[in-house]
């Protein structure tokens, strides 16, 4: 399959290079994600259904690996069911043993997907949950780009209890050969439209937006520690860029309400670094 692709690539004139590169990504993958049907919003605690139409263009491998990238707060390990129907057989999928390593790199699947695929447009707070087909089916030897095995993967998952905006991701691979280093037998897809979970009080946590500013450098602290709050106007597009003096306006929330200190005095003036 690879040889054929390279020949096609060499024959192409220089003009349509960008198109050819795009096609190459599709050609060298044994899996094509044809279509993802995913809701764009959900209510807290709701079960959503996602379907993924897939084409398999190679007969190597028989046991499907599926990865689902979801917010950690959803606890997708506990609340997700995956199954597929295809032109060569149907199966449920089960959570892969976290200690199971792929035959190629001898590392757990989730760890490798995190390293090689990442979390898409989410700034963090995500995890990859990996499933393995309960039944194996070998595609016929005639399987090719022109005669692919087709199928649909169905994911049912319960969204979490808080307002969140997140980009969901999907990974396909196969367990017999493992996660090949050239990615030739795997593929992944992040749904462009971020899904918004609504229904709880308060602002949503927007994982698709910029990561929150880290105000305090310490990982852990308590009331006795000296907390140093840092602010760099250049990290954002605020009116404070170029300001000579910046004052801290703070609100402390406690059991009997809140206390605000929002004054322009030397006590609240932030020191320049």
């Amino acid at each position: 399959m690879k040889e054929q692709t390279v020949k096609q690539f060499n024959r192409l004139p220089r003009g349509p290079m960008i198109i050819a590169t795009t096609l190459l990504v599709f050609f060298i993958s044994c899996f094509n994600i044809v279509r993802v049907n995913q809701p764009s919003s959900a209510m807290i605690g709701e079960e959503i259904t996602v379907t993924i139409d897939v084409g398999i263009t190679d007969d190597a491998g028989s046991t499907l690996i599926f990865g689902f990238c979801a917010p950690r707060s959803w606890r997708a390990f506990d609340y997700t069911q995956v199954s597929f129907v295809s032109s060569i057989g149907n199966s449920t999928m089960s959570l892969i043993d976290p200690n199971e390593v792929d035959p190629e790199n001898k590392q757990p699947w989730a760890q490798q997907i995190i390293e090689r695929v990442g979390f898409g447009g989410n700034y963090g707070e995500m995890e990859w949950v990996v499933f393995k087909a309960d039944n194996s089916f070998t595609p016929p030897s005639t399987t090719s780009e022109d005669d692919p095995v087709t199928g649909t993967i169905t994911i049912k998952t319960k969204v979490g209890p808080s307002n969140i905006i997140t980009q969901l991701g999907y990974f396909l691979g196969e367990a017999d050969w493992g996660y090949l280093d050239d990615n030739s037998n795997s593929t992944f897809f992040f749904e462009k439209t971020c899904l918004e979970v609504q229904g709880a009080s308060g602002q949503p946590q927007d994982l698709c937006g910029p990561s929150p500013r880290k105000l305090i450098g310490l990982e852990t602290y308590d009331f006795n520690d000296l907390l140093i709050i840092t602010f760099d106007a250049k990290e954002d597009t605020t009116m404070l860029i170029g300001a000579n003096k910046v004052y801290l306006c703070s609100t402390a929330i406690h059991s009997s309400g809140s206390t605000q200190r929002c004054e322009k005095t030397p006590n609240t003036e932030m020191k320049k670094k």
């Binding site: 310490l218 990982e219 852990t220 602290y221 308590d222 009331f223 006795n224 520690d225 000296l226």
Partner: peptide, 9 residues
């Protein structure tokens, strides 16, 4: 350390 043991002054 003042509060958390993680923070060493």
């Amino acid at each position: 350390s003042l509060g958390c043991r993680d923070n060493l002054y």
